[in-house]
Nucleic acid binder design. Structure first.
Length: 559
RNA sequence: UGGGGUGUCGCCAAGCGGUAAGGCAUUAGAUUCUGACUCUAACAUUCGAGGGUUCAAAUCCUUCCACCCCAGCCA
């Protein structure tokens, strides 16, 4: 039993930061920011960004602020701003301060005015379609807008009137005057302010003009004292623009943008838009559905935050697109859970086991260790008796080679109780096994250090001392197409593309005094971790998944 | 197609001119009152491909190939 330890990571971003510090470009305490747009729930793909930003600040004794990139009210809501804070806290990270891009609107505006005065920005009257048409294509340069060379006075006046709400939404915008012929499309006079008459969740209707990401983000970074602005790969071509804004802002603090690759899990749905669609279509119960890889979905599945952090650190970081095998995540989930899980007995798919040589009402008290994986553990009482339940898969009429569990003539240990010898079985008219019979050996009680050793140990539950529960086995909710995992693009998926086996409901049994406890994690069988859920329709829900679904017994390989 | 980026074991990923770290997965074995956990061992003569420079290259030069991102008044 090892205690999972935090994984130290060094990566190319740290190398860059170290260089900046050594060469005196930034103070040794760096400042980062975690800049989510409050337009969705956080998911596993965001954890890398969180670990990086908060982690880097921690590592360099700097600070990391949470800053909502809330410059597009049409997509954002308070629900998302609240959930993001909860999720970050749950992950174990702390921001120094909370800021909003909207807090900086006045300063953003003043800098825009300064740019206009310097002839570096102009109000364009072209429609959105025209702007697009004038922009050119990937291979052809763009055309300059006829409004590009308006006088500073006219621009100032127009921009002021935009701000005052005198124009229609979309009728005009403010553009940075850079280079319409640039091979980098982002530099072809990007729009930096647009007119927007939408109600904003934080600032209401106070502003009629909204800066674009490309304008506000670098400014807010500099204003806040950020030294390193870590972002996704999609902003790589925006870096020249980022730097242009920083250079022309007149701000003394100059932040530097560094991009890293996003993290995907093979076959796992992560797109914000996609997750929303699943929720809206009722495919899943909500943003916290355990099949989802949202932070809260994972959490509800019983995953612990350190698993996520360790996973992300172990996966490392580079600029190459990384599509990680979910088995790796599972490993980190298991390794954390293994340390903390209470071992209990439960049977997912039961068949009856009758002990021949014990009285109908006879009961033998046994003691079960709650945490056998630890040096010290508490114990609980349980009862061995005549009518027990075992897992259907723990009995075979014709045992495959090397099979260690129940088959007629074989001896097996009932976990925590006695060694038992299988004597026979009953089947129904269809040939399905209904009952298994066995004799127990009274000399082999658990804890007595009996000489007899047996290869297999089997979980069981006493029919009388167990309760019927609904057991929900969750598989990963995946898509067959790999391209569906991307976050940004329009994604289309038909209903039948979802894994239909993502939720399996079983009628199982658990020891009768195992009750809901938010903190507790459990393990039963050889491979399943679960937690109980308070929304249970019956006594409890069991969340399982690929966590530990590895079954070392593979008959086909053992022939 | 113009620009930007990336290609090291099935999957991540170190490496930055001195002769291929590590993790996941896999395989074999030990241990085991969970076929779990733990343990031990195996697992790239080779770094997208071809040329070149060098005593020496995954690391430098060069050509080519593949994949990703960019033409929102989204972020």
């Amino acid at each position: 039993m090892t205690i999972s330890k935090p994984i130290e990571a060094t990566n190319f971003i740290e190398n860059e930061i170290n260089k900046d510090i050594e060469e005196g470009r930034v103070p040794s305490c760096v400042q980062t920011r975690h800049p989510p747009e409050p337009s969705g729930y956080l998911h596993i793909g965001h954890v890398r960004n969180i670990v990086l930003n908060y982690g880097l600040a921690e590592k360099y004794n700097g600070i990391c602020n949470l800053r909502y990139d809330d410059t597009n009210p049409s997509k954002e809501s308070q629900e998302f701003v609240d959930s993001i804070q909860e999720d970050v806290k749950w992950l174990g990270y702390h921001w120094k301060e909370i800021h909003y891009a909207t807090e900086y609107f006045q300063q953003n505006y003043e800098i825009a005015v300064k740019l206009i005065k310097e002839g570096k920005a102009y109000v364009d009257d072209l429609s959105a379609e025209e702007v697009s048409a004038y922009r050119g294509t990937l291979t052809e340069p763009g055309k300059e807008s006829p409004y590009r060379n308006r006088s500073v006075e006219e621009n100032l006046d127009l921009f002021e009137r935009m701000k005052n709400g005198e124009f229609e939404m979309g009728s005009r915008c403010l553009r940075a005057k850079i280079d319409m012929a640039s091979p980098n499309i982002n530099m072809r006079d990007p729009v930096i302010y647009r007119i927007q008459y939408l109600h904003h969740q934080r600032i209401g209707d106070s502003w009629k003009i909204y800066p674009s990401y490309d304008f506000s983000h670098p400014l807010d970074d500099c204003l806040e004292g950020v030294t390193h602005s870590i972002c996704g790969p999609e902003f790589e071509d925006h870096r020249p623009l980022y730097n242009w804004v920083v250079e022309n802002s007149g701000l003394k603090n100059k932040s530097r943008q560094i991009e890293y690759a996003n993290l995907y899990l093979k076959g796992v749905i992560l797109g914000k838009r996609f997750i929303k669609k699943l929720v809206n279509d009722g495919k899943v119960s909500g943003f916290d559905d355990p099949r989802l890889y949202t932070i809260r979905g994972l959490r509800r599945r019983g995953v612990l935050p350190e698993s996520l952090v360790n996973f992300v650190n172990a996966a490392g970081i580079s600029k190459a697109v990384s599509v990680i095998d979910p088995a790796m995540l599972d490993y980190f989930i298991r390794s954390t859970l293994n340390d903390v899980s209470k071992r209990v007995m439960a049977v997912v798919d039961p068949i009856e086991l009758v002990i021949n040589n014990i009285g109908e009402n006879e009961e033998i008290e046994i003691s079960l260790a709650d945490y056998p994986q630890r040096e010290e553990t508490t114990h609980r009482k349980y009862y061995f008796g005549k009518h027990l339940l075992i897992e259907r898969s723990d009995f075979e009429i014709v045992p495959p080679p090397k099979y260690r569990r129940f088959f007629v003539g074989n001896e097996v240990r009932l976990n925590g109780a006695y060694i038992v010898k299988c004597t026979g079985y009953d089947t129904d008219e269809n040939g399905n096994v209904t009952t298994v019979y066995a004799d127990y050996d009274p000399e082999t009680k658990s804890g007595t250090n009996c000489a007899k050793k047996v290869k297999g140990t089997v979980h069981w539950v006493n029919k009388k001392h167990s309760k019927n529960v609904e057991i929900r086995l969750f598989e990963n909710l995946t898509l067959p197409k790999e391209e569906s995992l991307s976050g940004g693009k329009e994604q289309t998926a038909g209903e039948d593309e979802f894994n239909p086996n993502s939720l399996i409901i079983k009628n199982g049994f658990v020891e009768d005094d195992i009750d809901y406890n938010e903190e507790e994690r459990y393990q039963f069988l050889r491979n399943g971790y679960f937690c109980l859920d308070k929304d249970s329709t019956k006594d409890l829900l069991v969340f399982n998944r690929t966590v530990g679904l590895k079954d070392s017994y593979k008959p086909n390989n053992n022939q």
